[in-house]
Write a protein that binds this DNA or RNA. Structure first.
Lengths: 144, 144
DNA sequence: GGCTTGTATCGAGGTCAGTCTAATCAGCCC
DNA sequence: GGGCTGATTAGACTGACCTCGATACAAGCC
C-alpha cells in the first residue's frame, strides 16, 4: 500500500467513530459521501465474500491465491475487487516474498456497524459527534 | 407497498439475523447476494442522506415533500432513490391523504450492523446461524 | 366534473462499474 | 541472466446506474 493510502486509512476509523448513528440526526453531504463509498465497496457480492473470506481466514489474513480459487473469475478481476476494498480502507495488503496477504481493518467495520444502530452513548461521545454546526452546514434541518 | 414487497420485508430482518458475522465464517454466495443488495442500496450519498433524514425525522417518519426540498435534485430522482431503498427493504412508504410518508425498518439496520461485527453469542444463536452444510454448499472452505 | 398539488412511472441521455484478454511488474530458483 | 510463478495494471467491451423532462396517477378543492 502507498504511503498516502496508509495515511488515509489511519484516520478513517477514528473519523467514522465521530459520526452519529444514522437514526440520530441527518448526515451531512460530506459524511454521506464518505460512508457511501464504504457501503458501495461492500455493495458487490464478490467483494463481500472476499471480505468475509479474508476476515474469517485462519490467522486473520489470506493470500490472494487462496481467494482466487474460490471464485469462477479471472485473477485480474479478483485483483480489481481487492483494490476497491483496499482503496475504501476496508482491507490492507502486504507482500511477503512471492505472495500478497490481505487482512481486514476491524476498526472500520466496527465503526460502520456503529453508524447503523442507535449506539450506546459511550460509543459515540457527545464531544466527538457531528452536532457541531459547521459540520452540518450542508444539510438544513427539516422540521415537520 | 405491494403485498409481495410486504412479504419480502417481513422475513428480511429475521433472515439477516441468521447470518453469522462477516468475520466468523465465509459468506455463501446466496448470503453475499442478499447482503450486497442492501449495501448497494446504501452505496449512494443521496440514499444515505434520505435514510438518515427519514430515520432522524420527528415521529420516525418523513413526508416526501420534506425530503425533496433538502436536495438540489428533481422530484422524480428523489422518488427513484426512495424506490431503491424501499425495494431493498430498508424503508416502507404509506400514503395518507395527499402525502406519502416513509419510515425506516430499524430491524434491518440492526441486523446489518450485527453482520459487520463479531457479535456477542446471544445476537447470533448457534442454532440459527449458517453453519448448516446445505447453506454453505456454494463456498468451499479455504484452508491455509 | 375540471383544476391544483403531490408522487410515481416512463423513456432517454450520459456516466460508471464489472469483466475479460494481453501485457507488465515482483520475487524466487536454476 | 533467463525462466517461472504470483499478482497487478492497461485497455476495451458490455451492462447497470443516476439523472432528467415528460407523462400519468391520486387526492383534495373549486
Amino acid at each position: 500500500m502507498s504511503k498516502q493510502e496508509q495515511d488515509t486509512l489511519e484516520g478513517l476509523a477514528a473519523q467514522l467513530g465521530c459520526y452519529s448513528p444514522l437514526v440520530r440526526e441527518p448526515l451531512s453531504g460530506e459524511q454521506a459521501g464518505e460512508l457511501s463509498r464504504l457501503f458501495k465497496a461492500m455493495g458487490d457480492p464478490v467483494r463481500l465474500r472476499l471480505l468475509s473470506l479474508i476476515a474469517s481466514h485462519a490467522g486473520g489474513e489470506a493470500c490472494v491465491c487462496d481467494l482466487t480459487e474460490v471464485f469462477d473469475l479471472s485473477a485480474p478481476t479478483i485483483s480489481h475487487h481487492l483494490k476497491v476494498l483496499r482503496e475504501a480502507g476496508l482491507i490492507t495488503g502486504e507482500r511477503r516474498a512471492t505472495w500478497v496477504y490481505y487482512r481486514i481493518e476491524p476498526d472500520v467495520l466496527e465503526a460502520l456497524a456503529a453508524v447503523l444502530v442507535p449506539a450506546a452513548p459511550d460509543t459515540v461521545p457527545d464531544g466527538l459527534n457531528t452536532t457541531r454546526p459547521e459540520a452540518r452546514r450542508e444539510l438544513p434541518v427539516v422540521e415537520a
